[in-house]
Computed example of a mutant assay.
Amino acid sequence: MQVSDIPALPRGVRLHHDRVRDTWVLLAPERAVTLDMVGHAILTEVDGIRTFGDITNGLAEKYNAPVAQIVEDSAGFLDALRNRRFLDVIA
C-alpha cells in the first residue's frame, strides 16, 4: 500500500458490532472477519476519502505511536483484506 492510495470498503462490505459476542466484525456477502482492537481502529479510519498516509499519520497521533510502525502494521492488515476482496484501493 502506498501513502497516496485511498482505501475504501467496497459495496456490500461494512463494519458491524456483533452484540452477542461483543466484538466487531467486517461483514461481506456470505463472509465475515472478526476484528481485534487494532483492526477495528484501522478500519474506523477508512472512509474512501482520506489517503493511507493521512490515515496512518492520524492513527500515530491518536495512539502516540511511531508512524513507521503504524504504516507497517496497517499496510499488512489492509493488503490482506484487499487480497480477500474486503477492501478496494483507489490509486
Rank of each mutant, 00 (worst) to 15 (best):
L27I: 04
R82T: 10
P7W: 08
N64E: 11
N83C: 08
P7Y: 06
G58T: 05
Y63F: 15
D73Q: 14
R84D: 14
D47V: 06
T44V: 10
R85F: 10
E72F: 13
L15S: 03
E30A: 15
F86C: 04
V20C: 04
D88H: 11
V13C: 07
L59F: 08
M37D: 13
Y63V: 01
V20W: 12
V20K: 15
V33M: 10
P66E: 13
A75N: 06
V25R: 12
L87T: 04
F52T: 02
V13P: 03
F52H: 08
F77D: 04
V89I: 12
L87F: 08
G76C: 07
I42Q: 01
P10Y: 02
Q69M: 13
H17Y: 15
V38Q: 09
F86Q: 05
G12I: 02
L35Q: 07
H16M: 09
I42E: 01
D47G: 11
L35N: 02
A80Q: 12
E30Y: 12
V46N: 04
A68F: 11
N83Q: 14
G12E: 01
H16S: 11
N64C: 08
D18Q: 12
S74F: 09
S74M: 06
I49Y: 08
F86T: 02
L59E: 03
G39I: 05
A41T: 09
R31E: 12
E30W: 11
R21G: 02
D88L: 14
T56S: 05
G58Y: 09
F77P: 02
L9V: 02
L81C: 05
Q69C: 05
R31I: 07
V38Y: 12
V25M: 09
L78P: 00
V38L: 13
V33H: 08
P66T: 05
I70Y: 08
L26S: 09
G58M: 06
F52K: 00
T51E: 04
D88K: 11
V46P: 00
D18W: 11
R31Y: 08
T23V: 15
R11P: 01
N83I: 06
L27W: 00
D47N: 15
M37Y: 08
A75H: 06
G58F: 06
A68R: 14
A68T: 13
V46Y: 07
F77N: 08
T44C: 05
R11G: 07
A65K: 11
R50Q: 09
G76W: 07
A68C: 02
I70K: 07
Q69G: 10
D73M: 15
L9F: 05
A8F: 04
L59T: 01
L27V: 09
I49K: 13
L43Y: 09
